[in-house]
Design a protein around this nucleic acid. Structure first.
Length: 288
DNA sequence: CTTAACGCCTGAAGGC
DNA sequence: TGCCTTCAGGCGTTAA
């Protein structure tokens, strides 16, 4: 099996957001160092630094897998970790002699603490928004998994308009925002739904189980990560131990924990890995 | 409007 | 030992 790595999905992003709230609310940025400008997109490093320096952090929010850092001036930063982005909080600045690898951006606060943005693959983004400016990442963003507006009927109606697999539906951030490849596989396994079933054939019972398991898994994962990362300063590559709860992701070749009769399969589905049990996960609802 | 494919990017791991 | 290839995948872009 390939070595484990943590991919930030909703529970991990939520954990990061909570850690940021604990550590950087009320702090003023006095200096910003750009080691790599790609996360900034089209904004030049000089302009970015000029805009965020002297800003005071008022609150930190999550929408989908995005982190939204809002300043007292109502200007803000929207950040996405993609695959390998991480935030590291340092309670002291070490004279800005940052020893972590792959640091792309460093924020120094007035109290001499620092926030580092690390990203091996540099897929992640940090975008600046003026007060009142339309946040493009929020346009067309899907429902939060815990939103009361997500009902079984709503999900079935939404699914029935789509000619894609239910796995791909769960990954579509315009429908439900926050699920990634790991949790999509895990949710479908626990719901007993085949990842290959077409969204427009989803039954009410299947939709109900998917929504219920989605919320249960995400809630548990948030709780789990929250306890393992009680102090944000300890966030590093080893933090987050939700992989211990995984039942199918990267479990190909091992016996299914539910039926104990067959091995978990791995297939390539829409350029991504999908893990599933061919016995427990059915194309149509045959259980009830 | 929809769906599908590609590129971005680096390091770990496997093959020979 | 060391070089080469494959794989990991979220999402913006482009094409159909």
């Amino acid at each position: 099996m390939r070595g484990t790595f943590i991919m930030p999905e909703l529970p991990e992003v939520e954990t990061v957001v909570r850690g940021l709230r604990k550590n950087i609310i009320g702090k003023q940025i006095i200096e910003t160092t750009i080691f790599h400008e790609r996360p900034l997109g089209t904004m030049s490093p000089e302009i970015f630094c000029n805009k965020v320096e002297r800003e005071v952090i008022e609150r930190v929010e999550r929408f989908g897998k995005y982190i939204h850092i809002i300043f007292a001036s109502k200007r803000s930063i929207v950040s996405h970790l993609r695959m390998t982005g991480k935030y590291i909080y340092l309670s002291q600045d070490h004279n800005k002699n940052y020893t972590h690898k792959h640091i792309r951006i460093a924020f120094l606060f007035a109290d001499q603490s620092s926030l580092l943005y690390k990203d091996v693959r540099i897929f992640g983004t940090i975008r600046f928004y003026e007060a009142g400016e339309v946040v493009v990442e929020k346009v067309n963003i899907g429902m939060d998994p815990f939103s009361k507006e997500i009902t079984t009927d709503w999900f079935v109606r939404k699914a029935h308009t789509r000619h894609i697999s239910v796995k791909q539906l769960l990954l579509d951030q315009k429908v439900i925002a926050g699920l990634g490849n790991i949790y999509a596989s895990e949710i479908l396994f626990r719901a007993g739904v085949s990842p290959f079933q077409k969204a427009h054939t989803l039954t009410t019972r299947q939709a109900s189980r998917i929504i219920q398991h989605m919320r249960d898994i995400l809630k548990l994962a948030i709780k789990y990560n929250g306890t393992s990362v009680s102090d944000f300063r300890t966030i590093d590559d080893k933090s987050g131990s939700f992989q211990n709860m995984l039942q199918v992701y990267q479990k190909d070749g091992t016996l299914c924990v539910q039926c104990h009769k067959t091995e978990i399969c791995k297939v390539r589905q829409a350029q991504r890995s999908t893990f599933y049990c061919p016995v427990c996960q059915k194309m149509v609802d045959e259980k009830e």
